[in-house]
Computed example of a mutant assay.
Amino acid sequence: MSQLGTLSQTTLLSATTGSLPGYLLPVWQKMLMVPSTTVLDFVPANHLTPIKKKKDGYLGTVEWQEKSIPVFSFETLNKGSKVPEPQTIAIFHAISIGDKVAEYGIALQAAAEQIKIKISELEDIEKAQVGPMEFMQVRFREDLAYIPDLDALEARILSLV
């Protein structure tokens, strides 16, 4: 399991004495909750250069800091359906695939919300159905959020690039 940026049990437990900065990322019909250490930047989706034939959630590339960054649809990678065109793109720091893909983008449907996460504010939704790219579902401030399984997500991304 990767050490940087995942919301592992250890990371969540460390949040009991303080707070962990993070983001709520609006993907199609759900929110992803990630620590801020995983997200490097946000860019407008109109900077996306689509690939000719979209395959398995690979949408195209975006230029970021003079590099071409691959952009993906979380929902499609998570075995979901096709989604509307993205509004913004979150640039992620690759945790487990940094040697081949140092950064990657996830398409968002709206602007991200910066949050402070404390374990006392999270309620684990036991036995909640989650997709293959999701670690767990939680209730945060009365709303549902999904914590992505970044290791699984990055393994899937690596298989596509």
Rank of each mutant, 00 (worst) to 15 (best):
I95T: 15
P70H: 13
T10K: 07
L158R: 11
V27Q: 06
L144M: 09
V130G: 03
Y23C: 04
S36P: 00
I147Y: 00
V34A: 05
P50H: 14
A110F: 00
V27A: 03
A102K: 15
V39I: 05
E75T: 13
P21Q: 14
G98M: 06
V43T: 14
A15Y: 01
S73L: 06
L7G: 11
Q137I: 05
K52Q: 15
G80R: 14
K79P: 02
W64M: 01
T16F: 00
I89W: 01
T49W: 04
E103T: 03
P148T: 09
I115T: 02
L158T: 01
F135Y: 07
D56K: 15
A94C: 12
I117R: 00
G80F: 07
P148I: 06
S159M: 12
I147S: 01
K79D: 15
V101L: 08
V27S: 03
L144I: 10
W28S: 12
D124V: 01
V161G: 00
M31Q: 15
P70V: 15
A45P: 01
T38G: 00
D149T: 02
L160N: 06
D56L: 12
L122T: 01
P148Q: 06
W28V: 12
Q109A: 02
L108V: 02
V34N: 07
D149S: 06
A112Y: 00
G131R: 03
R156Q: 15
I51S: 09
T10R: 06
E63H: 08
E63Q: 11
K100T: 07
M136Y: 07
I91L: 04
I115P: 00
L122R: 01
N46F: 09
L40Y: 04
A145G: 05
K54Y: 06
S159T: 13
V62H: 06
T10Q: 07
L153A: 09
D124K: 02
V62N: 04
S120G: 11
E123L: 09
D99F: 12
P26F: 12
M1C: 10
G131Y: 04
L20N: 00
G5C: 03
K116N: 08
V39G: 01
G18F: 03
I125C: 11
E123V: 14
F135E: 07
T37D: 05
S14P: 00
P86Y: 12
I51W: 08
I51Q: 11
A111R: 04
V34E: 08
L77T: 14
Q114V: 03
E126A: 12
H47K: 15
V71L: 05
W28C: 13
K82G: 04
L122Q: 04
V138T: 05
P84F: 12
Q137G: 04
K55A: 13
E121K: 10
L12S: 02
S120L: 11
F42M: 10
E75Q: 15
R139C: 09
G105E: 00
